[in-house]
């Protein structure tokens, strides 16, 4: 059907649409390519006063380092400024947040999808409101109690906070996913004498993985991309990658420091790039799952 409609499109329309699409692709991809290329240059080339072409050819990079590509930005960020420590912290935070929030979310989402009562609806509505809270407003609520109870600055604190902020979204997504698994499946298991939990354990868990993986991708993105919570709740030595990049910006006075930020920006983007490459289908279906349900 779609191809037939497409074939009948008049030529001018097709040309306009294609050129628009090409323009959009450039707008979407060029900034990343440009920054990737520039991250192997020195600051004088990436931010060139004389000529923007310097960022492509890199005359200063050649004269300063002897070759037209340099890894000094990466070396400075990862080794000198210990970006690897931030990367380790990010890894811990992200893995813990994804595991915990999926565990909580599958249990809660399953219960919400199987409950016929009115309170299940209210819980979903309340979590929609929670989903709308800007994280920074919650952070301003955490600071004082966390200082009082000496919880501020530790990784577990940030992890549990991110899990909680993640819950409303996870619940919505998994509830709509579990609703698509026929009720008969677990109910017939319970007829056969399983308890509710056994039915969940033996019947639902084996078939829930596609939905859980999709939801997990979005939990991953939330934890990985977070700035508000990790920047305000973690002490300097426990910083994750995103606040670390922001801290490079605060000290740009020293020459070359901005290149640390450029190279770490590329380091942070690379895993996301791979993620989209391998999980494009799941990301797209996850984005649309909520919309189709309305």
């Amino acid at each position: 059907m779609t191809t037939r409609v497409a074939d009948r499109r008049p030529l001018t329309l097709r040309v306009v649409m294609s050129s628009f699409l090409v323009l959009w692709l450039i707008v979407a991809a060029f900034p990343f390519l440009w920054t990737l290329w520039g991250s192997f240059k020195v600051e004088g080339d990436f931010f060139s006063k004389a000529d923007w072409l310097n960022a492509l050819t890199g005359p200063l990079t050649v004269s300063e380092t002897g070759s037209s590509f340099t890894g000094s930005g990466y070396y400075g960020a990862w080794v000198q400024e210990e970006f690897w420590r931030a990367a380790m912290n990010s890894l811990i935070v992200v893995v813990c947040v994804v595991c915990i929030s999926l565990t909580f979310g599958t249990l809660g989402g399953y219960a919400l999808s199987r409950s016929p009562y009115r309170y299940a609806f209210w819980l979903l509505l309340v979590s929609l409101v929670f989903r709308a809270m800007p994280p920074i407003t919650l952070v301003s609520g955490y600071l004082l109690p966390f200082f009082e109870w000496n919880l501020w600055g530790h990784l577990p604190t940030a992890i549990i906070v991110l899990v909680a902020i993640n819950q409303p979204f996870t619940l919505w997504m998994l509830t709509s996913f579990f609703r698509n698994i026929p009720k008969d499946l677990d109910e017939s298991a319970m007829m056969d004498g399983c308890s509710r939990f056994q039915a969940f354990r033996h019947v639902i868990i084996p078939v829930m993985w596609p939905g859980v993986i999709t939801t997990g991708l979005f939990s991953f993105l939330l934890a990985y991309n977070d700035f508000a919570v990790t920047a305000m709740l973690l002490s300097k030595e426990n910083q994750t990658m995103i606040p670390k990049i922001a801290s490079f910006l605060g000290t740009t006075q020293t020459k070359g420091n901005v290149m640390f930020a450029v190279s770490s920006v590329i380091s942070v983007t690379a895993p996301l790039f791979l993620l989209v490459m391998f999980f494009q289908r799941q990301i797209v279906s996850g984005l649309t799952a909520g919309a189709v349900k309305g």
Partner: peptide
């Protein structure tokens, strides 16, 4: 095309 189009959304906002 979908792959490239997803990039601006997936990338960390700060980055």
């Amino acid at each position: 095309v979908i792959f490239v189009s997803l990039l601006p959304m997936i990338v960390t906002p700060l980055v």
